[in-house]
C-alpha cells in the first residue's frame, strides 16, 4: 500500500493549525507520533511518501525528532515495527541540510524524490551499497545476479549488499527480486508484485 503523508498537514493537525514551520523538539515529536499513528493504520507492508512541500523551515532538532527517530524504528532494528519504506519528497535545500546532518549522526540513509521524479539516495552509505542502489534504480528492479553483472561484484557479494539495502529499507525486496523506492512503486501482494522489463530485470509497477 502506498500512503501519501503531507507533513505540513500533520503539523497543523497535531500541533497548531497556524504553524507552517517544523521547529523545536516537542513539535517534532508530536508530528512523528502523528505519522506513526497513520502508519499503524495502513498495514504491515507499506510505502510512505512523506511530503515536505508545504513545510517552511525544518530545524536540526525537529529533523532529529521526525526523521531520525522515525527511521530508527523501522530501519535500524533487528525486529522493525513492520515493513515500511519511506520516500521523502518536496524537500528544499535547507530541509536537506538539516536532514543530512541527522542522518550523518546516526549513520542512517534515506531516499528522496526530486522535483523531476528522480530518486536520490542521501545519508551514510558505502560505495558498494550506492552502486548497487543506483543499478537497481537504473534497471527499475533487478535480481542479485543482474546487479552482479552490471557492477562487476561477485554474485554472493551483490546478494549481501542488496540484502543490506533492503534491511535499511532503501530498496524493496519482493519474491522476484529487488525494486527501487519511488512513489510509483507498489509493495507486497499487488498484481504479481512486479512486472518484467525488456532487460529481463524486474520493473516498477505504476500505481
Amino acid at each position: 500500500m502506498i500512503s501519501h503523508i503531507d507533513v505540513s498537514s500533520v503539523l497543523r493537525r497535531t500541533v497548531c493549525d497556524l504553524y507552517s514551520n517544523l521547529v523545536t523538539r516537542p513539535t517534532g515529536a508530536a508530528v512523528r507520533i502523528g505519522i506513526e499513528r497513520h502508519l499503524d493504520e495502513i498495514g504491515d507492508k507499506a510505502l510512505a511518501i512523506l511530503d515536505f512541500s508545504h513545510v517552511g523551515l525544518l530545524d536540526y532538532s525537529c529533523a532529529d525528532e521526525i526523521v531520525a527517530k522515525l527511521l530508527m524504528q523501522y530501519v535500524s532494528v533487528d525486529d522493525p515495527r513492520r515493513e515500511v519504506y519511506f520516500v521523502f519528497s518536496g524537500m528544499s535545500e535547507s530541509h536537506m541540510e538539516a536532514i543530512d546532518s541527522v542522518l550523518d549522526r546516526y549513520g542512517l540513509a534515506l531516499v528522496t524524490q526530486l522535483a523531476d521524479g528522480a530518486a536520490q539516495l542521501i545519508g551514510k552509505v558505502d560505495g558498494e551499497q550506492r552502486r548497487a542502489w543506483e543499478t537497481i534504480a537504473q534497471l527499475g528492479g533487478a535480481r542479485p545476479a543482474d546487479v552482479a553483472t552490471a557492477t562487476g561484484m561477485l554474485p554472493e557479494h551483490a546478494e549481501r549488499t542488496l540484502e543490506t539495502l533492503w534491511r535499511r529499507r532503501l530498496v524493496i525486496r519482493q519474491e522476484s527480486g529487488y525494486v527501487p523506492l519511488r512513489s510509483g512503486v507498489r509493495t507486497g501482494g499487488v498484481r504479481g508484485d512486479a512486472t518484467r522489463g525488456t532487460s529481463g530485470a524486474i520493473g516498477v509497477v505504476a500505481s
Partner: peptide, 20 residues
C-alpha cells in the same frame, strides 16, 4: 537567498537552548 532559512534555523536552535 539560501541564507534566510539557515539564519532562521540558527535562531530557532539558540532559542530552544533557553527552553531546554
Amino acid at each position: 537567498s539560501s541564507v534566510t532559512m539557515r539564519f532562521t534555523m540558527a535562531l530557532s536552535e539558540v532559542c530552544q537552548n533557553v527552553i531546554e
